[in-house]
Amino acid sequence: VLVDRFYLGIGGTLTFKNAKKTVEVVKEIPLDRIVIETDCPYLTPEPFRGKRNEPIYVEHVAQKIAEIKEISVEEVTKATTENAKKLYKIG
């Protein structure tokens, strides 16, 4: 499976009302293959849509992932942080 070799970056568009396909993808992707991205300065998540995107807004993406996967936000942030560290060879 392709996702076994790659990480998928999930950004603010996941929070959009019309993001049905992205929601379905997130349901299927294992948490250990997801990283969260800002798409800065564009594609700001709800409730800030239309404004300049900022890195602090990734918390809204993490909350949406947690909702979709029915897990805690803490679990999402811990896993996606570890994924980013592995991907970028940090620490």
Score class of each variant (00 low, 15 high):
V1M: 09
V1T: 10
L2M: 06
V3Y: 01
V3E: 00
Y7M: 07
I10K: 02
G12L: 04
G12C: 05
T13H: 04
T13W: 01
T13K: 03
T13A: 08
T15P: 01
T15M: 06
F16K: 03
F16D: 06
K17I: 01
K17V: 03
K17E: 05
N18P: 03
A19N: 07
A19S: 14
A19L: 06
K20G: 09
K20T: 10
T22R: 08
E24V: 03
E24P: 01
V26Q: 07
E28T: 09
P30F: 08
P30Y: 04
L31F: 11
L31W: 09
D32S: 12
R33P: 11
R33L: 11
R33Q: 14
I34A: 08
I34Y: 01
I34P: 02
V35L: 12
V35I: 15
E37V: 07
E37R: 05
T38A: 12
D39F: 08
P41G: 08
L43I: 11
T44L: 07
T44Q: 02
P45T: 11
F48D: 04
F48R: 12
R49Q: 13
R49I: 02
R49K: 15
G50I: 05
G50D: 09
G50C: 07
K51E: 15
N53C: 15
E54F: 05
E54D: 15
P55V: 14
I56S: 15
V58C: 12
H60V: 05
H60A: 02
H60W: 07
V61N: 00
Q63W: 00
Q63L: 12
Q63F: 00
I65T: 02
I65P: 03
I65N: 03
A66T: 04
E67Q: 14
E67S: 13
E67H: 11
I68M: 05
S72H: 11
V73D: 02
V73Y: 13
V73T: 15
V76H: 11
V76N: 11
T77D: 04
K78V: 13
A79F: 07
T80Q: 09
A84P: 04
L87R: 01
L87I: 03
L87N: 01
Y88F: 15
K89W: 03
I90A: 07
I90D: 02
